[in-house]
Nucleic acid binder design. Sequence first.
RNA 1: GGGCUUAUAGCUCAGUUGGUUAGAGCGCACGCCUGAUAAGCGUGAGGUCGCUAGUUCAAAUCUAGCUAGGCCCA
Length: 1043
Amino acid sequence: MYKPVSSKVDFVKLEHEQLKFWEKADIFNKLRKKNENGPRWSFLDGPITANNPMGVHHAWGRTLKDVFNRYHGMLGHYMRYQNGFDCQGLWVEVEVEKELGFKSKTDIETYGVEKFVQACKDRVIKYSKVQTEQSKRLGYWMDWDNSYYTMSDENNYTIWHFLKKCHERGMIYKGHDVMPWCPRCGSAMSEHEIATEGYKELTHKTVFVKFYLKEKPDEALLVWTTTPWTLAANTAAAVNVEMDYVKVEAKAKVEYYYLAKELTNILTGDYKIVEELKGKDLLGLKYHGPFDELPAQKGVEHFVIAWDEVSDSDGTGIVHIAPGCGKEDFALSKENDIAIIAPIDEFGNYLENYDFLTGKNCQEVNSEIFDNLKEKGICYKIDQITHRYPTCWRHGTELVFRLVDEWFISMEPIREDMMKVVGQISWIPAWGYDREMDWLRNMGDWMISKKRYWGLSLPIWQCGECGHFEVIGGKEELKARAVAGWEEFEGHSPHKPHIDNIEIKCSKCGAKSKRIPDVGNPWLDAGIVPYSTMHYITDHDYWKQWFPADFITESLPGQFRNWFYSLLAMSTVLENTAPFKTVLGHALVKDETGKDMHKSAGNAIPFHDAADHMGVDVMRWMYTAHNPEYNLNFGYGPADEIRKKMLTLWNMYSFYVTYADIDRYDPTKQKVAYTKLNELDKWALAKIHAFIKEAREDYDSFRVERLMRKFEMLLEEMSNWYVRRSRRRFWKSGNDIDKMGAYYTLYNILRTMISVLAPILPFVTEDIYQNLVLSVDKKAPQSVHLQEFPVADESLIDTELLDKIDIIIKAVEMGRSARNKANIRTRQPLANMLFKAKSEKEKGYILELADQIKEELNIKNITLVDDIRDYVEYEAKPNFVTLGKKIGKQMPLAIKGLKEMDGETVAAAVQRGEALMVNGISIDPADIQIAMREKEHIVAVEDRGYVAILDIRISEELKAEGLVRDLVRHIQTLRKEADFNVDDRIALNLKSPDSLTEALELNRDYLLGETLAEFAEISEQESEIRKEINVGNEIIIVNIKRI
RNA sequence: GGGCUUAUAGCUCAGUUGGUUAGAGCGCACGCCUGAUAAGCGUGAGGUCGCUAGUUCAAAUCUAGCUAGGCCCA
């Protein structure tokens, strides 16, 4: 016996119950045990940053991960189920700084690096626990006690191994370069960091400055800059040698300016062009720098150099060059032997030797600089510009460009190899390949150092005497090389500050080498995981069994240059092969209206809110049904739509259980052979098995959104055709083979659906399974997730039968359409429907299954016809508006003529697009409107060559039947109001006017059968229910009571 | 400026290798059902498939250009 199932269901409550059940019955471990000898399937988890609670955007990726893990679990695969946490990096430091109220690196130093690093570790531990609990709530089945942490010793030391390999190939170098720099972090930003979310639309003050020529004191170069603070570091001006320049005479003040010919529109006041020249004519001109008086500028020669990138699209065509403040500027300094001045410290403050600027922040000195330039008479004009400017992804502060020493991996030696490796991977969507290749073609060297505290300790030891540096490849090697500090370090993780105490002997000069103070780029931490978490170094056999991963899935936009990139780079260096075979990318989660979710905008939905209010199965359905290539609009509105679909499944299940209990149906004992099933059952089974087949294909190709589309269609068909068409088979009394067939089929439909959907909707399918299957079959697997994934029986996919039912459904749809058009409700029986099919085959199907159509449409007869001319005629009318404009006064003649012509002939001509001659007037077919006019008593509907024609004449007999059906419906309502059970039999007493007696008499059996009643005399006292009912225009008094 | 990508109904999206009159859900209108019922179902309206040109017997689909948006790189 089944547990009764209410049609009202609380999915969230149900999910909590199933979580408890899985926990208590240890289902996940039973699954692992069951599959331990199965073929391996290697999923590799991209680590989630353990820095905050999980968001609904994380839940998308984690749902996909879980879905494919669960599917492969049902295929019997042995898996690792290892989740990963990303632990190290600036994002954690930033949150900890916030907690502690720190403003800068100085605060951290004061607080103590050891305590600070510990606080970072603590934060990671705290949030990894929060995320673990949230993931469990999502139904994410992982080996939670065995999650990997990128801060682990093994992870860090495996990166050391990688870096040493790089060094052996000569790829590690210290770069002296201008880098984008965040004054708030006190650190450089790598390309990757800025590219992700760095650029903002900002408005800045700009200034046009006059650089007077040394040789000609009344002539000046006009130079434009958007970063006035860098003028203090100017050492050159650049022109494009091919471009056209002009020398203009300023009328107001007799002096001359040089600028690009195309940019004279920036000039103020009257001017006159006195000379045209090429950029090359300006080369080598010496000029007075804008801040020659600063001590830092002492001895610097300023002159004009050439640069191809100079354009005349904005500014003046003469570019201010400050090699200490710009990347390109710095590169130019190497080619042109110009001076390099680096003006600011790590917080963006001017260094010594900058006079009034010293100690001031470079981002706050605009007005002082402008005043100074005006005083010196070299300010031409001040303006402003709105442009995209790089900012810090954490602080939002504007970046400055600063000359620093950073450590890099040279990517040139592996660029070609990496591109080959990319080709080994299956990218979903396929354009992922092109995106990754584009990034690889353009990638610069990888900056791996950061002047911060919490992260990988870069294993680079540099000699204080000779500058020679060495890369250490692991803990043992370090121990062997250590000449100082090992004792203090022993027992600590390889993090700052303890690691910094260790000194080694320089292998070149024998002096002491110390570790560089920098920490590593966090993408090193994540990129190494196919090696570290699979124990590449510590258990190589194990690694061989699991590497490469079969599958990874992550959010697309950033990862081409982040995780995918670091995975590929590191694996190319270590093994020259791809670390994963297939990658499925998904886009971003937006709010319901497509806007970014932001806490501050109030449109963000925290994970726990969504889980508690919509339920995680609904969320999982939403994630899996969506094409992952595009952004997902997440919200309670879309969730409601999905909830309704889930209710359809639930209601089918509840319907089955209700009736199976009444009839004590047991699917394990009362099986029905395929040959004994009726057409409808066989059709349902054909659908179901086709679904299994397609579901496997979709899971195997990682396209679950296709699966979900098919599922939604199947669910609709099963609910609105199979169950509805079969309802009477369940209601009828007795337990014949037809009824058993219905139960058996519906049981199989439900069981198959929940088995196929179990990976996607793990909770509701489990809940259904526990009752549907386990209540009657104690030998079945203990959980829906411990079953084997269903196998399609292709012999049951009867395509002819599928076609057959399709045409029946079509005929029914058209019949309904006709009824709607005639405004006659289904309850009123009609005598006949004529139907025009398109092939002999279809006619055969209709004849064979005519009963189903008749029942659905409540019609007495269906007739197949070929020629519909007896029922409808075509009628041609002119399009008065368009034709009237053309022929004007001839209209009446045309109307008359058209009326007299045979509609059929006109329709045919119009169809062919031929002009018609009507009473001597040529009429364009576009000016004729063809209508189908039904003859009397006829309603016709046409669709794609099919025609359904309803005879809407209602005889007395049909009318009577309609009345009785009305009465039946009222009695059914009474039964329900009285809380009778659906199978209670009743005594019925009617007091009706004479006019209805005959109608009742004619349909007596129908009335009694439908209401489970027998006529009986009941006095008003005995009657449980008495009601006056309006039927037609008469009143009937109904008394009923249970017997 | 370069790469990738998108443009289909009021909204969110399908449309596999070109092939009858381009589909679904939601919303809307009208209605049905009342033994899945604070549910369920049907019918309908609504689209020159961003624009232009080309290839083809045939283009939402292929090609080129243009316009607008997104992501990325300069």
